[in-house]
Design a protein around this nucleic acid. Sequence first.
DNA 1: GTTAAATTTTAGGCGCGCCTAAAACATACT
DNA 2: AGTATGTTTTAGGCGCGCCTAAAATTTAAC
Lengths: 245, 245
Amino acid sequence: MAPDINALTQGSSLQRDGLNHQAIEDYLKTIYMLEQEESPVSTSRIAAARDVKPGSATSMIQRLDKLNLVNYVKHYGVTLTESGREIALEVIRHHRLVELYLIEALGFSWDEVHEQADLLEHVISEKLEERIAAALNYPEFDPHGDPIPSREGEVSELHTYRLTSVLPGTVVVISRVLDDADSKLLRYLGTLGLVPGVSLKVIDIAPFDGPITIELDKETLIVGHKVADSVLIMPVDETEGTLAP
Amino acid sequence: MAPDINALTQGSSLQRDGLNHQAIEDYLKTIYMLEQEESPVSTSRIAAARDVKPGSATSMIQRLDKLNLVNYVKHYGVTLTESGREIALEVIRHHRLVELYLIEALGFSWDEVHEQADLLEHVISEKLEERIAAALNYPEFDPHGDPIPSREGEVSELHTYRLTSVLPGTVVVISRVLDDADSKLLRYLGTLGLVPGVSLKVIDIAPFDGPITIELDKETLIVGHKVADSVLIMPVDETEGTLAP
DNA sequence: GTTAAATTTTAGGCGCGCCTAAAACATACT
DNA sequence: AGTATGTTTTAGGCGCGCCTAAAATTTAAC
């Protein structure tokens, strides 16, 4: 399905030529993530996400556009092209496989794998990717509950909601924890037992970004709005698909 | 033992700051290797090893000198400083640990790990390094027989000779295979059974870079000069230290 | 010791990925 | 419409890591 085999994306492998693709891959990944929320993506959102100045983002986007990795309309926004999306998904696949591997095979903890995976994701060959996936028995979800894109670029999407957005009384299962949260927050969630796969009941949600009261394992727990906001859930009645581990 | 804690080498970890140290690490590693053969190292040797033009090497060396990672005397040569050596050894440690890990844990073959390790060596955190070392039970040698530097920068050196430089009749044990040989050559050596740990008898060495006749496993084998030259050995009588696996 | 050859260094240029500051554009309000 | 506000783009600059081409230095040869 590779549409435009140019010098850059040939063979869908990224580090064949001498170029340093790290920055390109990071931008494409960022744009992919932001497009999930809202598309097209403005340059300022990209700049904020990548923590660079708006002008820097603009010039990088112009380069990506020339490389046919994004479609860019001035003053309007950015969307990924098919080849851009392919690269983004490959990097995300690397990232999530590596995160899981660090935990399963090398004893890392849940909250400390993100940074290391951000480095490794750019230097994983096709072969290593395959071996890691095989060692993990071709998993569908990473430790944060994020879906791992298939090699063909398919992503099992669960329709999830934020824990802060359900009605009191609902019983839910945690499907994902946003892994862009900082690792202290993740560790805190771990100690509370708020990890993917766990089910809980929402008792109360206080207004004005107030605390959320939940029942978990017969215990009542009260967590802040910010904490609850990085927890994604599925209502327990419409549980049908595969669930994260 | 860190001598000069400046912004670059603080804490002896390399990717703390935002800088891209890949190139610096590659140069230091190259210089370390070349210093093993002959010190000081000329810019042209560095340029050849790194496959860049002499002028490029010179300007990089000047930067390394400013960073206090090498001592550089114009028209004379380059030597590593203590901090330069520390970094070089850390990268080499990463490289060799990763090579062994790819083989032991992920089923890679002997001859295909080098390129992947060259990429990974720059993005291994202290923690990941430790976990990999632990998983391998703190090995002393990598699959090519190269010594893995300790975290403190100690290298178990075996006094080795080239297979091409011993006298006919000598019984020897293969201690290392030069891993800068290309992977086809490595694969060929593997099929012949010429891997670290194996012992063999040298029957004859033809002059003028001619073929080498050896006896291995009761079989007589004739290999070319170039092939034999990438095999390092220890005479079997003075076997005392630990041997490569 | 002068000259020729080889090595090494300098000078100047280029693309990357970032910056700051100024200009262009879009939006929202009178 | 006109103006103020905020966003986005352009312009120009900087360090990195490479290049080519010319200048300087060392080495070897006569």
